[in-house]
Simulated scan of single mutants.
Amino acid sequence: MNSFYASVEAAHQPELKGKPIAIAGNPEERRGIVVTCSYEARSKGVKTTMQVHEALKLCPELIVLRPDFTKYRQASKAMFDLLRSYTELVEPVSIDEGYMDITDLSGNPVELIKEIQDRILRELDLPCSIGVSPNKFLSKMASDMKKPMGITVIRKREIREKLWPLPIREMHGVGEKTAEKLAALSISTIGDLARAEEIQLKSLLGMNGLKLRSRANGVDERKVDPESVYDFKSVGNSTTLPRDLTNQNELLKIIEQLSAKVSERLRSKQMLGYGLQVMIRFKNRKTITRSLTLSHPLYEQVHIAEHAKSLFLKHWNGTPVRLLGVTVQDLADKSHAYKQINLFSYKEDVKYEPVEKVMRELEEKHGKGILTRGLKSSKNHQNAETSFSKDFLDDHD
């Protein structure tokens, strides 16, 4: 979907069409941050992460709106329902993006895609861009090539022409840090990556390097999986203590060690998570688990440990402990981190975003300490509130 939140606002208020719009978490504050904006605003230089007062200097006529979560979720559900009227093979990736497999549908595929785009615009009054290809990776790349209201087809034989000349930073799945590492091998374009030596890539990036090389060559065997939207996995680690412990410092040190192992496993899986659970088994073998759901993603050891220790201290009553466990839950692929992040608690979320580009931009411009942290806790993980950008999953039950 193109400039989804701003487009939804314009669909509900036709007088906003064609005007520069920005959605900001707190537009009344001069230090409020623009989290998304219309293409009319972008043409005036307004960008995501920009402070509202800076945006207004560039575009005095900018219309700054508060987010309306209910409207965005309703629009998302309507969009995915429309896609499912063609096929059940629809895989939501985020509130405004997904894959669909049209292999078995009759008719000319490009004409079908045009019909889908026209229907979304006509029935929902929302613009979108669509990528068409033999697999997920190429379709994702194609969908970003023409915005707004673009349709881009990439065939396998067109990879050299359409994909390889692009800068490596534009490749889906390559973040800024990975791009910097690849630059050390003189890899500056997707074509460079496609032709790179496998041994060098594996040495530099591990198995992820080989996966990225395959993607650059147009290879992606992943199927469109409608069930993946419900796939909440976890990565955890626990240990039975050599003796029952009551020393708080020792127990917190063990939680730090467990958090480090969990972080390492998340790295190896290229995953991040939005939930945290701590398990405590006492001397009498009574076991409790306490969980919380966060609006920002967990990935780094220091942040996992910070929240795990806080959760432990909140629920430990001083009784001797014989086992401790730390688990990160509600996992998401790192490549979708931007889509999973809750844009409307942006100042809190962005500090923890493992794709550090946004955080760096904010702190370079406005100084260290501008970002703060927020969390929501619950004894029952399944009833815990989630961030807005993950709440859309509830609409697919």
Rank of each mutant, 00 (worst) to 15 (best):
L163N: 00
K136D: 07
K365R: 15
L166P: 00
N2M: 06
R169C: 01
K223T: 10
F137S: 00
D68V: 11
N247L: 09
I159H: 03
S94C: 09
L258F: 04
E15R: 14
L124F: 04
D144W: 02
I190Q: 00
K146Y: 10
S259P: 09
E348I: 00
P67T: 05
N249C: 06
H396N: 08
E197H: 11
V224W: 05
Q277V: 13
L121H: 14
L324D: 11
I168S: 00
S214T: 00
Q270P: 03
E29F: 13
Y72T: 03
I23S: 06
T189D: 01
I33R: 12
E361D: 15
E170C: 00
G206E: 12
E54M: 15
L272S: 08
R66T: 13
S43T: 03
H336S: 11
T152Q: 13
G18A: 07
M50F: 11
D395A: 11
R73V: 08
Q51N: 14
L241G: 07
L210F: 03
L298F: 02
R215D: 01
E115V: 01
T319F: 11
Q248W: 06
S106V: 02
S133R: 07
E40G: 01
V358S: 15
L241K: 07
Y39L: 07
K269L: 12
V35P: 03
G325C: 12
T386K: 10
K233A: 15
Y352I: 01
K261Y: 06
M207I: 06
E9C: 07
S310W: 14
T87L: 10
G367L: 10
R373H: 10
I95C: 06
H53E: 15
V110W: 08
T49R: 07
P60Q: 06
K379F: 14
L193F: 00
N249M: 12
Q117A: 13
K390H: 11
L393P: 03
D330P: 02
I120C: 09
K136Q: 09
A183S: 13
S76P: 04
K379T: 14
P67N: 10
R222C: 07
V235L: 13
L343E: 09
N249H: 12
